[in-house]
Design a protein around this nucleic acid. Structure first.
Length: 513
RNA sequence: GACCUGGUAGCUCAGGUGGUAGAGCAUCUGCCUUUUAAGCAGAGGGUCCUGGGUUCGAAUCCCAGCCAGGUCACCA
């Protein structure tokens, strides 16, 4: 790479050498600043034109624009809080220093000290009386006017995206606040945050294909978790009555505007609660986040008005299908299969009736639900961890929360009958044997835990990324992930030698201490 | 996985009925001490995504592939 630099990169490296030749460290160790860009704008907002601050301030940041005028020049310095204009002239800092200043590039990080004044054009500006290079930038920034718009580049080089597109930073600040607020709300209600294993021996807690890994020393395969569910329920067995975990899960599936192979989930379990209680909790958590971050419950997503004012509609899956013109109420399996076939659902002959109902629902209901809706009471076949419905046979007490056609949450009255759970796992084992890669593993340890006894429990999982999409009006999950998954560019792929090291037998591998 | 669209200078883009590549910004040189897409004058910068094919000649046409975005499918 280093031998074939473009002209622009060469020029910057030459400047780096020149700076060093002058005895200046282009990468010094620390810097004391006493103000921020936003702070300067705020503190000196009252300065009149031509008026100057009594005190000096020191700020640091990245040079984002430059307008040279011979022996004086303007620039904008950007820090985490925003941008402020700076003005340097040779008279003030001396010829030697000004020569250095003049050669600074956009992208360089500097610290500046001086009084603040207001220019003819009324902009609050720091007059540079001294400055220091804090980091020489060797890579040119994108164009100042159009910026960085290429989506691929924005995702691959998120650091540049964050520098030049302030609204991107805003999304991630909001994301952090949403998560923080949910955490705080739960803690205030007496929930305990916990961490459970990410490397799992078994696949469980959701219908999804896992990523596989391998532990060399133990000589055993491991799965990256697809959900923390089964561990969290063990904790309820152990006596924690209100627990939650916010963490990453990994699902080996396709990528789309609402799917990334790794994503953040929050799972919450509350003993002595059922799914009706959990619906209320869901409303509470999401509306609290919306109020805090947006200040309103009437939001707009992709140009569509969505009203988050609770209570949200509760609609049974059967009823939702009926409203979509698919009436399966009181019908037997044969009749439902016939309806599915009429609706163009083909190739599911050998698949269970529950799955067929799910396909009908996915295809004809979910995408059309725009306002917040709890779809409740799902077929038992596709819900192996949910408790049988107290009234409806063949169904479980489960809900999915749909907003803007996206599933945001999934929850049940948790199955705590160990005998029933064993039967459900057995069914899953059959499916797995028949080639269903998403079926649950038979988890004997989890069954043993249930045999000790788990109180009646309501459980909830919320897709944090999708929630953030909704609350920040971002069209793709990639826009709420700092580093969304991308296929590697050819040059970014691991070198053959590196792969060779990884593939070696553990015995011959030098152990890091 | 299927289909559609795109990939040209560091960035944003134009061009292309086949004749060997352009703009703006950025960069470099000179001038310029209140500008803000600063200005003026000049200069440099390209595997036109990759590989094949057709052709006297391909950035352009054809085929295959890679990467991305979108739609659909799969999928919580």
């Amino acid at each position: 790479m280093t031998e074939e630099l473009s002209e622009l990169l060469k020029v910057r490296r030459q400047k780096l050498d020149e700076i060093r030749a002058k005895g200046i460290d282009p990468f010094p160790y620390r810097f004391d600043k006493d103000q921020t860009a936003a702070g300067v704008l705020k503190e000196f907002a009252k300065l009149g034109e031509g008026e100057e601050s009594k005190q000096k301030v020191t700020i640091a940041g990245r040079i984002m624009t430059k307008r040279g005028h011979g022996k004086a020049s303007f620039a904008h310095l950007q820090d985490e809080t925003g941008r402020v204009q700076i003005y340097a002239k040779q008279d003030l800092i001396g010829q030697d220093k000004y020569e250095i200043y003049r050669k600074l590039d956009m992208g360089d990080i500097i610290g500046v000290t001086g009084h603040v004044f207001r220019t003819k054009t009324k902009e609050i500006t720091l007059r540079v009386e001294d400055f220091q290079i804090l980091c020489k930038s060797l890579h040119p920034l994108p164009e100042k006017w159009h910026g960085l718009t290429d989506k691929e580049l924005r995702y691959r080089e998120r650091y540049v995206d964050l520098m030049v597109n302030p609204e991107v930073k805003e999304v991630f600040v909001k994301r952090s606040r949403i998560i923080s607020l949910i955490r705080r709300t739960l803690e205030n209600k007496g929930f305990l945050e916990v961490d459970t294993p990410i490397l799992n021996m078994l696949q469980g807690g959701a219908a999804a294909k896992p990523f596989e890994s391998y532990h060399d020393a133990l000589d055993m395969p491991l799965f990256m978790r697809i959900a923390p569910e089964l561990y969290l329920k063990r904790l309820v067995v152990g006596g924690f009555e209100k627990v939650f975990e916010i963490g990453r899960v990994f699902r080996n599936e396709g990528i789309s505007y609402k799917h990334n192979p790794e994503f953040t989930i929050i799972e919450i379990y509350e003993a002595y609660a059922d799914y009706n209680d959990v619906m209320k909790l869901t409303e509470e958590l999401i509306t609290a986040a919306a109020k805090e971050v947006l200040g309103t419950l009437k939001i707009e997503y992709k140009g569509e008005k969505i009203d988050l004012t609770p209570p949200w509609k509760r609609l049974s899956l059967v009823e939702a299908l009926k409203q979509a013109g698919i009436d399966i109420g009181g019908k037997n399996e044969k009749e439902i299969r016939k309806i599915a076939k009429l609706k163009g659902i083909e190739g599911y002959e050998e698949i269970g009736i529950g799955k067929i109902i799910n396909v009908l629902y996915d295809k004809f209901v979910e995408a059309n639900l725009r306002q917040p809706t709890f779809i409740i009471d799902h077929p038992i076949e596709t819900s192996p961890l949910a408790k049988k419905h107290r009234d409806k046979t063949g169904q479980v007490e489960r809900f999915e929360l749909i907003i803007a056609g996206m599933e945001l949450a999934n929850a049940f009255s948790e199955l705590n009958d160990p005998v029933d759970q064993r039967q459900r796992f057995a069914k899953q084992a059959e499916l797995k044997a028949a080639g269903d890669q998403e079926a649950e593993s038979m988890d004997e340890d989890f069954l043993r835990a249930l045999e000790y006894g788990m109180p009646p429990t309501g459980g909830l999982g919320v897709g944090i990324d999708r929630l953030v999409m909704l609350l920040t009006d971002q069209p793709s999950i990639r826009d709420v992930l700092l580093f969304p998954h991308m296929k590697p560019l050819a040059q970014a792929q691991p070198k053959a030698e590196e792969m060779g090291v990884l593939d070696q037998e553990p015995a011959s591998k030098p152990r890091a201490s």
